[in-house]
């Protein structure tokens, strides 16, 4: 097997592989930066919870009109936003902390979603929603994913400064600008939007993987914000590419393969990453003079 057979031929020969690659690239463009900010705002688990929360919405969409792109997207969006707002309200109106109320909401959502799906559909449908069908992306789905990526990048460009400043020094931001709260809400909407985009390709369980794993991996290599965002996106790209090839050559399911590649990169980075990895901390380099 030469280079071409390994890396090029699968995409040259099969259209579904090309579609999958485009889909994953579009997904990575949006999910990379959003994941980086989720991590920096210490909301990694929020992302996870939201991903699960999308399930019952998508399931109800499925219940109403089968495997229909619009119905399932709309259902997922509605459910995601409902849980985001609901968890926030419960946290503010009661003594429960936000992480606990998010956990409660997403456990209920997950159970509800699986229940709805198995009442109406088959196990195949359940697997479709949970793990996605990156190898079966049709035109409308590709447009949707690419549209979400475009919208995400434009919105991030608009809210970049307040978003950064609200992470670093919220007191200062509120003293110079009122953009803090609106940009936070816009960011939450982007999270839900990207998870909904990701769920068509990777399913609700794995959509958050392409968001969080590259961001967490990149944190072990760079210490500045812009490189962090770029590196996270690049790692998401490469994970998608490598995961598709692995699934093609060994016949593994593609969604999990992609996430496992990203997971492998994470494990390697935890050990060898120069910015706070295990080995870098255990064996520090010789220090500078000053």
């Amino acid at each position: 097997m030469n280079f071409t057979d390994l890396f090029i031929a699968p995409f040259a020969e099969f259209e579904f592989m090309r579609r999958a690659l485009v889909g994953i690239f579009a997904l990575a463009l949006g999910a990379g930066p959003v994941g980086a900010f989720l991590m920096l705002r210490r909301m990694s688990l929020t992302g996870d919870a939201m991903a699960h929360a999308i399930l019952p919405g998508a399931a109800i969409g499925f219940l109403v009109s089968g495997l229909d792109l619009f119905a399932m997207t709309f259902g997922g969006l509605a459910a995601g936003l409902f849980v985001a707002v609901g968890a926030g309200v419960v946290a503010r109106a009661t003594e429960l902390k936000e992480d606990a109320s998010l956990a409660a909401f997403y456990l209920i959502s997950l159970a509800l979603g699986v229940m709805i799906l198995s009442v109406k559909g088959s196990n195949v449908d359940l697997l479709h929603v949970l793990f996605g069908t990156v190898l079966g992306l049709d035109d409308p789905t590709l447009y949707l994913v690419a549209g979400i990526a475009t919208f995400t990048l434009v919105t991030l460009a608009v809210i970049w400064r307040p978003l950064v400043l609200e992470c670093v020094d919220p007191a200062f931001l509120s003293s110079v600008s009122r953009a803090g709260a609106p940009s936070h809400i816009a960011f939450l909407a982007l999270v839900v939007l990207n998870l909904v985009g990701g769920f068509h390709a990777l399913g609700t369980l794995l959509a958050v993987g392409l968001m969080m794993l590259p961001a967490a991996t990149a944190r072990f290599w760079v210490r500045d914000l812009t490189p962090l965002v770029c590196l996270a996106t690049a790692i998401a790209f490469v994970s998608g590419f490598a995961g598709l090839l692995i699934s093609y050559h060994v016949g593994a399911p593609s969604g999990p393969a992609i996430i496992l590649v990203a997971g492998g990169a994470y494990v390697v980075s935890v050990l060898f990453g120069p910015a706070g990895g295990v080995i870098a901390r255990r064996f520090p380099q010789r220090h500078f003079e000053a």
Binding site: L40, V164, L165, C167, V168, D169, P170, A171, F172, R219, V222, R223, D224, L225, L228
Partner: peptide, 17 residues
């Protein structure tokens, strides 16, 4: 000042704000 010191931002960018 409640600054999140773990956030990856440089002195230059911090001052520029």
């Amino acid at each position: 000042a409640q600054v999140d010191r773990s956030f990856p931002i440089s002195v230059y960018d911090m001052v520029a704000m």
